[in-house]
Amino acid sequence: MRLLKFVFLLFFIGLNSCIQEDIVNDRVPEELRIISSVNALKVGDVVKLHASYFNNIGEKESKTVVWETSNPTVLSIDEFTTNITAKAEGTATITVKTIGVSGELTDSEIIMVVKDDVVVIPSENTKKGTITPTESYDASGDFEVIKTTNGIQIILANNYVADESLPGFALFLTNNPNSLVNALQIDAYDDADGAHYKGAFTYSVNGVGLNDYQYLVQWCRPFSILVGKATITDK
């Protein structure tokens, strides 16, 4: 009888090996970001710029924004439609503003207006970044992100390294490096083609804009470990 009680006690201890909670610090700075990548317009062009507000966990939230121009004679903004019209040659800074939890948030874009017979070469369709380790696993390398017809390409340089000893390796685009919620998986160990760990490689990601994500991160997915992080910036 005593033995039976002891066995029940062991089972009770086992049942108490319950799933508990790990509290994850997933706070990131709020951000207002111009998503449209426009750097040059021809006189007479009318475009609508888009901006997204990302809250303090990197989630996109709907927010009322205000657009301003530094030079209305070059670029004017329709108050109701927020369309931007290129009126004359020159350069103007378009600024978008909103009020976040932490105060006013802004983002700006310098746009050049040229004559309508000038060929515009978009120069801001490329971004870049450098992966650095966040733990003791190997994580390094440069990359570029370019805009394509259907989305973007992430072009890893020859010096790219992901740790081959890392179990459950996965690569993500995200707006919060501390959380995989809303992150977009680019590559993973359990993909049909496996993961890429070293050297030059190009990922094509359809349906994603150049400014949709701010970070490229390497994770050990099963064990929730951020091992490498890069901030994506203008080239």
Binding site: I19, Q20, E21, D22, I23, I57, L180, S224
Partner: peptide
């Protein structure tokens, strides 16, 4: 029994990753 804790956001209290066993 192999298990992993639920990952919970410090900011929102929402579940980031469900626990599993």
């Amino acid at each position: 029994r192999i298990y992993q804790n639920t990952q919970v956001s410090e900011v929102t209290g929402n579940v980031l990753q469900e626990g599993e066993a």
